[in-house]
Amino acid sequence: MAGILVTVGMGSWAFDRLIRAVEPLCAYHDVFVQTGASPVVPPCPHARWVPLDEMRRRLSDADIVITHAGSTVRLVQRLGGVPIVVARRRSLAETGSDRQEQFLHAEERIGRVQAVWDVDQLAAAVASHAVVAADMLESRPLPPAVSDEDLIATVDRVTRRLLG
């Protein structure tokens, strides 16, 4: 039994497909689902919205994070994890753009993600996660984040230019 956190972000678009796909996992794992705008109620502990600090703690504590292809992907990676990622699809009215699909394709090529394009494969992805994650952590480097000093210098340079 793994501790699984499922998160669909804080936006106004529902992601029913992912919430429904998680339901079978609730019988075998310790699952918490952040359901967001979805009206679907999973048979396991859940909350529509989770404050940022609590979400960071849950991300850190989870054995496996299943997320939409949003900013959570990088948060999990920075915590040393490999998220299982399902992209929202514009064609299914799960979002208003192709951004998540494009981001997940890009991450799938070189990043530390276990992409799931068919949610029927979600349980299989969870079952193989430990092996897949170990391989990715070994072989795929994570780009560094900008330092505070460089961030301040860059944005100060931009604002000085704008203000003449």
């Binding site: 292809a69 900013s71 992907v73 192709d98 951004r99 494009q102 981001f103 931009v158 203000l163």
Partner: peptide, 19 residues
């Protein structure tokens, strides 16, 4: 007033809509 927009890391293709 000058404006600065910060593009999200998840933007990899051509922005659409409000972005």
């Amino acid at each position: 007033v000058p404006t600065v927009w910060l593009e999200t890391l998840t933007q990899t293709g051509r922005p659409c809509g409000t972005a």
